[in-house]
Simulated assay, not measured.
Amino acid sequence: LARDFKRVGHAWGETTHNYAEVPVFLDSKASRLIQMADLVAFALFRFYEHHDDSFFQVIRGCFDSEGGVEHGLYVRT
């Protein structure tokens, strides 16, 4: 799956380059970084689906931004 994602691309049709690491699909019990990704995903889910910003407030300032535009967080409008 990871190999196809890198070669074929994603929904926007672009292939991906310059991975710092390869995508890994595993149980969050196996890695603290996977646990962190799960927590970030949960915070975003609670914020956008349930309008609960209690967890999102912790990570709000952690997304890359330039000139008031956030990068790395895609919000479908």
Rank of each mutant, 00 (worst) to 15 (best):
A2W: 06
A2G: 15
R3I: 05
D4I: 10
F5Q: 05
F5T: 07
K6P: 00
K6G: 02
R7L: 14
V8R: 15
V8Y: 08
G9L: 02
G9Q: 00
G9P: 06
H10A: 08
H10G: 12
A11V: 10
A11P: 02
A11D: 09
A11G: 05
W12P: 00
G13C: 04
G13N: 05
G13Y: 03
G13P: 07
E14F: 13
E14Q: 12
E14V: 03
E14P: 00
H17E: 14
N18G: 07
E21L: 11
E21D: 10
V22T: 11
V22G: 08
P23Q: 02
F25P: 01
F25D: 05
F25L: 09
F25Y: 09
F25G: 06
D27Q: 07
S28Y: 11
S28D: 09
S28C: 08
S28N: 09
K29D: 08
S31G: 04
S31L: 06
S31I: 03
R32P: 07
R32H: 10
R32W: 02
R32E: 12
L33M: 09
I34A: 10
I34C: 07
I34P: 00
Q35G: 15
Q35N: 10
Q35V: 05
M36W: 03
A37K: 02
A37H: 02
D38K: 00
L39S: 09
L39H: 05
V40E: 00
V40Q: 00
V40T: 08
A41Y: 01
F42S: 12
F42E: 11
A43P: 06
A43C: 05
L44Q: 04
L44K: 05
F45D: 09
R46G: 00
R46T: 06
R46S: 07
F47V: 01
F47N: 09
Y48A: 08
E49Y: 07
E49F: 12
H50L: 15
H51M: 02
D53Y: 09
S54N: 11
S54T: 15
F55W: 04
F55L: 15
V58Q: 12
I59C: 03
R60D: 13
G61H: 09
G61F: 02
C62F: 06
D64W: 10
D64R: 14
D64N: 11
S65R: 14
S65C: 08
E66T: 05
G67M: 01
G67C: 04
G68R: 02
G68E: 01
G68I: 00
V69P: 04
V69T: 14
V69F: 01
E70Q: 14
E70Y: 12
H71K: 15
H71F: 13
H71R: 12
G72K: 03
Y74A: 11
V75N: 01
V75G: 04
V75D: 00
T77Q: 14
